[in-house]
């Protein structure tokens, strides 16, 4: 022992999160009761699951030995729809988001415009892409045009919100300096705000491109075009090797989009 023991004390680690023991016990008890209730509410037909294991194994085999050729025509059509939808909706989304984003920035927009733009953003962000797709398919009919509108609508909420936050985070000294030169509102946006947010806007657009592609592979399930419809059909027909091919293509494209967008982002910034 290196130093003389002056006192003999005990030590217990103080609680990390909840200081009050009553709260700790309530939360612990509450969550265990919830877990028991939740798990018991899941009815599992184990016989069906057992049967499914064989099908699951066939799916894994299909995934490992994908069949690109027999449904290639469908896959190709779905992919072209997905890809074109992705690009056009991202471009349209960016074009609409810029004015809305500027309008939703507290440091640039007057109060009524601010409220209106924030309202648009909230509506667009509250609903799942799938739900919007259901409505738009009902209005515009089946096909990629409804998908394009869905993705554009969803992009607007996402991009405008983040763009508005970026504009609000802008260095206010630069804005003041440009304003002090006697510049008008447009000149302030052009000279003080745009240089600061442009790299971020490009980064966000590329990120949204990535998300839009992923979503474009899903909304086909409700009839809004894209490779999701192909996938849905393949799974319905139990053609797991074709489904595997579609999934592999989706994963590959997501990887390519992700890597190239991170490359472009680094190049822009």
């Amino acid at each position: 022992m290196t130093s003389e023991v002056t006192s003999s004390r005990t030590w217990k680690r103080p609680p990390v999160l909840l200081k009050d023991p009553r709260w700790r016990w309530t939360i612990l008890l509450g969550s265990s009761v919830y877990l028991i209730l939740a798990i018991s509410s899941v009815e599992v037909d184990w016989f069906r699951v057992y049967e499914g294991l064989e099908r699951g194994w066939r799916f894994i085999q299909g995934f490992l030995t994908p069949d690109f050729s027999s449904r290639w025509r469908d896959i190709q059509a779905g992919l072209i729809e997905s890809l074109t939808m992705t690009l056009t909706s991202t471009v349209a989304g960016v074009l609409v988001s810029v004015p809305i984003g500027i309008g939703a920035a507290r440091n640039l927009a007057p109060a009524p415009v601010y409220m209106l733009c924030r309202g648009i953003i909230t509506v667009s962000r509250s609903f799942q892409e799938i739900i919007i797709a259901i409505l738009l398919v009902a209005m515009f009919g089946f096909g990629p045009f409804a998908g394009f509108l869905t993705l554009t609508f969803a992009s607007i909420g996402f991009l405008s919100k983040l763009l508005a936050e970026d504009i609000e985070d802008c260095d206010s000294a630069q804005i003041e300096a440009i304003r002090a030169t006697g510049a008008g509102w447009w000149q302030v946006v052009n000279y003080a705000v745009q240089p600061q947010v442009m790299p971020r806007l490009i980064g966000l657009s590329l990120y949204r491109l990535d998300i839009n592609f992923r979503e474009s592979s899903v909304i086909g399930i409700v009839g809004a075009g894209g490779v999701g419809a192909t996938l849905n059909t393949a799974i319905d027909r139990y053609e797991y090797d074709s489904a595997g091919a579609v999934l592999i293509i989706i994963i590959a494209i997501v990887l390519v989009v992700e890597y190239s967008s991170s490359y472009i982002r680094r190049w822009v910034q």
Binding site: S3, V5, S7, T10
Partner: peptide, 15 residues
């Protein structure tokens, strides 16, 4: 579990 032997804890206090 942070259950250290008593001698370790005593030494930690004195250090």
């Amino acid at each position: 579990l942070r259950r250290y032997p008593k001698t370790d804890i005593d030494q930690a206090f004195s250090l």
